[in-house]
Design a protein around this nucleic acid. Structure first.
Length: 354
DNA sequence: AACTCGGGGGC
DNA sequence: GCCCCAGAGTT
């Protein structure tokens, strides 16, 4: 789509389906738009709704904000987080009052010089409250454009950010910029969402490269993951003469809470201690192929051992321990890699007996 | 380029 | 429990 077709489609959608009732869309002034934009930095609309009107009622003008005690401003901000925003808000209010006569400068560059106002927020204030043709690139627009252009690379990289900004500038129309800016944010917030985007309702689906590829979720490319911490553990599968493996129930809280799992050892020599604790006699041991299991916060390398034991002198009733019969498996919760290992053990034991 | 600031919601 | 959210400032 040409930039004209792009912005027209977005504006038409906005007129029919955009949000027009948000508090900061009423009685639009640079002051109200500015305060809303600062509140909305890294903060969802539903959260800001609980703060905006209260803030405006207490401090209705930039002069009131400039003159307020800092404690009052922070009080009005309590619970919103990122409290530097509140302090910068008042710093900027004082500058606007003392240096600009109470009127925000109609100039993106001068706006970005004010504390707490970066390029995107400056663009939003300039376009929405002043009608200046200024692009924005907040999280919503970033997502919409990254998908529309199937933008490769993590947007945090300067090169990628530069391309996204260039596209943001390219598609920003000369007319109705105020509505266009709001429209792009609405589009990103309501249709072009991070997960489960409503592409069928999207005015840009015709030209959207990500949609064309069926890869909407792939964009924007997420921040590169830091390498996960590595841990290792030994998991012995103690198999008795009846083809059953010893499991224990993990504490109800924490990792694999309440699930049944295999014992864990740091080194194979600890097998003797483990056997002693359960009154077992070791017969043979056999290393199985290792496997890795990835958690959200670390990666676990598992070294499984199939260990045949004699349990004839074992105490059968230990709380939170049981013999899991591989031929007639009971129905209980197993950690994923444990389930996998039990299947392997069953295969080996059956193959070994036949 | 990486880190910090923060509370809340989605999955 | 992560990731992400109408980001910006600091190191």
């Amino acid at each position: 789509m040409s930039p004209e077709q792009f912005s027209s489609a977005v504006l038409e959608w906005y007129d029919r389906n955009g949000r027009h009732d948000l508090p900061w869309q009423q009685g639009i002034t640079p002051y109200r738009v500015w305060v809303s934009e600062i509140m909305l930095q890294q903060t969802q609309v539903s959260t800001v709704l609980n703060y905006f009107d209260r803030f405006m009622q207490a401090l209705p003008t930039v002069e009131a904000l400039a003159a307020a005690p800092e404690d009052e401003v922070l009080h009005l901000w309590t619970g919103l987080g990122y409290y530097t925003r509140a302090r910068n808000l008042q710093k900027t209010a004082k500058i606007v009052v003392e240096h600009y006569g109470g009127e925000f400068p109609r100039d993106v560059e001068k706006l970005t010089d004010l504390p707490g106002i970066g390029l995107s927020t400056a663009g939003a204030i300039a376009s929405i409250s002043m009608g200046l043709r200024a692009p924005i690139l907040d999280g919503n627009v970033k997502r919409v454009l990254a998908r529309y252009t199937a933008q490769e690379g993590y947007p945090g990289e300067p090169k990628v950010a530069k391309e996204l900004w260039a596209n943001a500038e390219r598609y920003t129309p000369h007319a109705r910029v105020n509505n266009y800016t709001q429209a792009m944010m609405d589009l990103g917030a309501t249709l072009c969402t991070r997960s489960k985007p409503s592409c069928l309702l999207c005015p840009l689906k015709v030209g959207c490269e990500a949609h064309l590829l069926g890869q909407e979720i792939r964009y924007p490319i997420p921040k590169p993951r830091k390498e996960l911490p590595q841990r290792r553990t030994l998991m012995p599968l103690l198999a008795n003469g009846q083809g059953a493996v010893l499991l224990y129930r993990r504490p109800s809280t924490g990792l694999w809470g309440g699930l049944w799992s295999l014992p864990e050892l740091e080194q194979v020599e600890q097998l003797d201690d483990l056997a002693d604790q359960h009154g077992l006699t070791l017969i043979t041991r056999q290393a199985l192929d290792g496997l890795t299991h990835t958690f959200s916060h670390f990666q676990l390398a598992i070294e499984p051992w199939l260990v045949r034991v004699d349990d004839s002198r074992a105490d059968m009733v230990e709380p939170d321990w049981l013999w899991y019969n591989l031929a007639t498996p009971p129905r209980l919760g197993l950690a994923a890699p444990v389930k996998k290992l039990l299947k392997r053990a069953a295969d080996v034991l059956i193959a070994g007996e036949s």
